[in-house]
Design a protein around this nucleic acid. Sequence first.
RNA 1: CGGCCCGUAGCUCAGCUGGCAGAGCACGUGACUCUUAAUCAUGGGGUCGAGGGUUCGAUUCCCUCCGGGCCGACCA
Length: 575
Amino acid sequence: MSDVSLSEQEQIRRQSLEELRKLGIDPYPAAEYKTNAFAQDILDNFIPEKNNYPDVCLAGRIMGRRIMGNASFAELMDSSGRIQIYVRRDEICPGEDKTMYNTVFKRLLDIGDIIGVKGFVFRTKMGETTIHVKEFTILSKSVRPLPVVKEKDGTYFDAVRDPEMRYRQRYIDLIVNPHVRDVFRKRSLIIQSMREFFNSKGYLEVETPILQPIPGGAAARPFITHHNTLDIPLYLRIADELYLKRLIVGGFEGVYEFAKDFRNEGMDRTHNPEFTVMEIYIAYKDYQWMMEFTEEIIKKVALDLHGKTEILYEGKTINLNPPYKRITMLDAIKEYTGLDISTMNENELRSACDRLGIPHTPSMGKGKLIDNIFGEKCQDHFIQPTFITDYPVETSPLTKMHRSKEGLTERFELMINGKELANAYSELNDPIDQMDRFREQLKLSEKGDDEAMAIDHDFVRALEYGMPPASGMGIGIDRLTMLMTDQPSIQDVLLFPQMKPENPKQGAGSRKEEFLECGIPEEWIDPLKNMGFNTCSKLKEAKAGKLFNDMCSYNKKNKLGLTNPNPEDVKKWIG
RNA sequence: CGGCCCGUAGCUCAGCUGGCAGAGCACGUGACUCUUAAUCAUGGGGUCGAGGGUUCGAUUCCCUCCGGGCCGACCA
């Protein structure tokens, strides 16, 4: 019984599956398979003179085969890497019955199957460390052919590069592009390195709500959802800042969270709707202290990952060794535009934007205009790590006013490779000022800024009880990972980046019942769909004679063994 | 949201100004007991992203749609 919607290769593999079962071999055994070695360990540590791997057992996926008759080589890939195995007929099958080799190994196994092998390690004439297999076990049969990627001297042939396949079917990407697994191991290491550092300082890792009644802590459009029992809207968090600061009010010295945040905005090379941010808040510190702390974090991550602070990103050498350059936002603008905007009012800023050719809208306040000038004219210049400090109050509603500079706040962003990597402040802990700032946001919102923050009354209430002076900082983990692993796109550092839903290969088509109502035998429904008649109405457009002929030849060609319809019935279906 | 490019066998990709849909790998069959992008022989495999239009004839030209990429806009 063959299914014509499957490709030839898939059908053959399903047949192999049946043959294995007939031979009494379970293609998906339940039992634990105890291994005692990994491929990479063997490759690294095997010494032929010592014969130090006389009895190994390992499991993995078959990635390539070279069958020469009564002996074969194959590539086995486990979580650590690839190793060659050597299988000889008369050792797999010591007796008269050569089925295990001739039939099972040579014919019924395929690239992609997962097997376990037992044997000893040796080195071939060609000098390759290889497992001489004495016994193998099928652990999982693959019924869908894997893309075959071959490699010689570091050059890959037919590598899967199609981004759509790589991101939609990440499992394939991980199987056939070994360096991809490395990227995600490094991502894990980065997080581990930071967590270690924070824990060593005694800071507490916490978890705060993802579903929030008021999405606060950042300027962004949220995702909205609905809670049925409470019958209220809830928002997926855009930041965890306001909750973490409540915990500082609560008396913790330092709290941090690796948080998934969600922003309902555009997607591109550096933006995914859900992304990971590490936010940390520490009592009795200010943003000056936080700059040094941030330098330490970045340096430690670089050292833990690469053993050095010089990294290469898109061909550019970036030195992450502190101290990093510091420049105020106003000085940066002065340096790259020649304009001193420190005394300009909103109208003067608008004409400055016009002169610089920077677009702006009436809904933009003073802060956004300054931010725009910086973003357009300055940001790209900061390739080496640079702290941009002292942001205008209008774009920093949660930041303490600058201790000495009017209209500015104690805030910095860390720029690396022209991109914002971290954002930090001396946290605003004056509840009256905070309430005023929220009200300013409300005005912006009325002006048409749909990203202005909503007032979080409970957060203000918390501040009213008194929050110690504190400094907080957020690092984009995805962007940090891109930087540290030299990946060009955020999709390359997210295991499952957001994609539009995939188109079903052939539209849903009419339901089975509709075909049955037309009088079409059940066994013919799928074949008809495969012939292109997805819907009953489409079928009715066909000519009866041609349809009858097509069905008979389709039946014959695909060896379906169905009863051919008779021409009279076909006429009736079409009506 | 706009501009440019892409979608052909399981995978990587050819396919010219419109004329029977191709290659390599993979797969099937046969040979081969240290190969390594194994080799040799031989065979099968396609809704050319979907729908419509022009045409005697469309993978090719035109339109619409779907999916993807790059650049820009919006946005951190």
